[in-house]
Write a protein that binds this DNA or RNA. Structure first.
Ligand code: ZN
Ligand code: ZN
Ligand code: ZN
Ligand code: ZN
Lengths: 143, 143
DNA sequence: CCATAGATGAGACTTAGTCTCATGTAGGTT
DNA sequence: AACCTACATGAGACTAAGTCTCATCTATGG
């Protein structure tokens, strides 16, 4: 998965630097959503010497390329989810942080209908579903 | 509209203090979504002497009572929209900041379908639609 | 191997939000 | 009306999130 990120960055025409390679691996090792602070902590724990700015810069890059998607957690924090460029909505587990993708079936129709009724010209939308994944429901391991 | 907010606060059993009355009016005078910083600026402009903490505390209260709803703007800022307690989704104009409500037709079905397929137990969801309202499309007044 | 545009880390800086605490006041009680 | 007290407030310290600048470094094409 880290490779995919790096390939996509290469395709986007940016340099494959040491810090970016390392961060790609840190992201790949995270199971679900993560915050900038999470990545920063990972990097510090491993003493990679990566600056705060570099992390924010990479996340911005990845978001531009649709390699991660920003989700706003119910508690207000900003997090990121590694993301297939073609899918745009996520089910986020508030217990373990895992996420899975939702295909757009129906959502676009809802958006179109809302646009028709309101007269708005819709440019973007954001849908996030929060709950507990199958694993966290059965196992009593809310991590 | 300020009256509605104040009545609802009264019903919720909290005190109707001076700062709360003044903030209710400031909120009522804002056309669409607003951030905590917006309110703070309004209050300072009028020299109301209202502290930062008071504003955050009131917004938290209003959100608990579903009198405002938090929306996360595409640029990452946290904003609030005055809100009917019964409706839960918004069309937000990125040009003038106005918003209108979307009834849930279809959205809940999408959520239910996603839950069925994924096995997630969905606890909450957030849908925000961003675009340009009818007024901002026709008039060349992006405010 | 070199040149250079692009990327980096350090750390100052800005903004958002929380917390504590001494003081003030809303609103019920008398 | 005066009083009491739990609740609310403003000030300002504090923390966390994010941006910016700039001197230095390096990936990459030639
Ligand atoms: Zn996705
Ligand atoms: Zn889970
Ligand atoms: Zn609403
Ligand atoms: Zn508008």
């Amino acid at each position: 998965m880290a490779q995919q990120l790096l390939q996509a960055l290469d395709r986007a025409g940016v340099r494959l630097t040491g810090p970016r390679r390392e961060l790609a691996h840190l992201i790949a090792q995270r199971a679900g959503h993560f915050t900038a602070a999470d990545l920063l902590a990972d990097a510090e724990r491993r003493q990679l010497g990566i600056g705060r700015a570099t992390i924010f810069r990479l996340l911005e890059l990845l978001a531009e390329q649709n390699l991660v998607e920003r989700v706003d957690l119910p508690d207000g924090r900003h997090a990121y989810v590694p993301c297939e460029p073609s899918h745009h909505h996520h089910l986020v587990c508030i217990s373990c942080g895992g996420s899975s993708e939702v295909d757009d079936c129906g959502i676009d129709a809802v958006a179109a209908e809302a646009a028709r009724r309101s007269g708005f010209e819709i440019q973007s939308h954001r849908l996030e579903l929060f709950g507990r994944c199958p694993g966290c429901q059965s196992g009593t391991s809310p991590q």
